[in-house]
Write a protein that binds this DNA or RNA. Sequence first.
DNA 1: CGCTTCGTGAAAGTAAGTTTCATCCGTGGC
DNA 2: GCCACGGATGAAACTTACTTTCACGAAGCG
Lengths: 304, 304
Amino acid sequence: MAKSPKISASHEPGGLIVHISGLLPSLSPAEQRVARLVVADPADAARRTITDLATAAETSEATVIRFCRSVGMDGYPQLRIRLAAEAARRIEPPDARVVGGDIPPGADLAQIIATIAFNDARAVEETAEQLDPAVCERVVDAIAGAGRIDVYGAGASGFVASDFQQKLHRIGRTAFYFPDVHTALTSAALLGRGDVAVGISHTGTTSDVIEVLEQARARGAATVALTNFPRSPITDVADFVLTTAARETTYRSGAMASRLAQLTVVDCLFVGVAARNRARAKKALEATAEAVQSHRVGGGRRRA
Amino acid sequence: MAKSPKISASHEPGGLIVHISGLLPSLSPAEQRVARLVVADPADAARRTITDLATAAETSEATVIRFCRSVGMDGYPQLRIRLAAEAARRIEPPDARVVGGDIPPGADLAQIIATIAFNDARAVEETAEQLDPAVCERVVDAIAGAGRIDVYGAGASGFVASDFQQKLHRIGRTAFYFPDVHTALTSAALLGRGDVAVGISHTGTTSDVIEVLEQARARGAATVALTNFPRSPITDVADFVLTTAARETTYRSGAMASRLAQLTVVDCLFVGVAARNRARAKKALEATAEAVQSHRVGGGRRRA
DNA sequence: CGCTTCGTGAAAGTAAGTTTCATCCGTGGC
DNA sequence: GCCACGGATGAAACTTACTTTCACGAAGCG
């Protein structure tokens, strides 16, 4: 056929379905039957084979192909995947998520899971959004160039502190964490210029951590605070303040989302430090990974 | 071992991509090549014919078919359609974010932060999506009714294990965590019917954890595995399998996203258990909170 | 050292998609 | 009334895509 060079929307910008229904009147009767099936249930049509769809439309495969060409597709397979994509897009995500909130007493486990995950994910995202890259940069600088790094934290924040310590250690930075205040204090007393002390406290009011950080600062170490509350006491003894953005309120959410937010910040710092010397960090990581290899079964591959 | 009726999610309710990346390690090398192509760009894979995809993966069509069956599809056309749907559903990530992946060498800190946060948040969300509430429910039941709960984990998963232990402890459940394998083994030997043992291992191949879990199971305790890989060895010794959905690949992302995903699951279980007896849990939490009150400055209030 | 098992691709076989072509039917000219 | 003519249509031939079968080779096991 001599298709004239026509100027029109060949890209069908809106939905494919909309496009098809627009073309419907211009199609031949047999093609219209196909079109109607497709428009009525795109997902279903995507599942069918060409023969199947032709039968359903009471026509032949040839007509279905013609229909494909009529609506601007190369062939049936292309139509199929486009329909599948289209159908997937128009499904509304069933938002059973309980936003920002508390978990209602009668909640079943599925609701609990959805709520927790939603809040956790939000905390992570929002923390990243409000993190100041400039401050991070300076903290990374300090850690990357530090002689020694002490990480302090109590309770739930202690896990994060410990995690951070272990991470830094794995890339060859000299880092310490102390579960005990007294030990931490003695360690802080030994810090000096060029060293870094990181204090982690969700509330920013944990006196043990503040005290240790204060000590470290007095000795000349650079001090970093990681807290959810930018004006909490811990910020008074910190040269650099990094904040998380968990907005949990009730006891039930506990320190859950905040802990994830803290870990996210820790991860960012870690990667930042590692990026300062990729080669060395990579080597160190590989060495540590290899070290635990003998404690793994199956050599990495798992049974089929 | 005589595989006893194990409770785990056989369906793939969350994303198909997530499902595939979880199965990745249990696939044969040639199938893995196919899987990686599919995960890397589902939309592109959906566009390809089976021969095309096979060529791209440097394998034969037969292997692609085998891959389809391995991930639970009927055949290639079905996979194609599902991939197209999947690709359409996901919101295209803002280009600064490097999806699922590695951080480019030249990245500045802002990019690093965005990338990490994005992947972390995704891991949390996707983990929640694919968690099977029914399995969770049974685990919660077991824990809520347990005489004693042991939580095992090594390395990075050890932090998570420790966190879980502490959480359960705070709501009055008798829970233990052992940083040392030998201590853990002796503890496991003392478990019995009505007790619960939880083993956490991202890869599912940590022999220490598997060994301890096996011991616990032999003594009659209910065993729970938390891993990213549904067919890893640890699942052989677990009555209940819970999976995370972190799809990190490279060393750099390390165990970062997976750890957040694990914590999310732990949080869900924790809240689930706490919800079984709200009054008691609340009272216990308040008591523990009060206990550390004297270690806070400003009486918990923060200055304006 | 043979045995099995598993992963693999070549090739055969089947199904799906595409093209070709003859037919049908309505239309309009002679 | 008869005969082109042209578009719509489906049967059938054809091509491509998908699936199965099978044999080979490598890795693990007794």
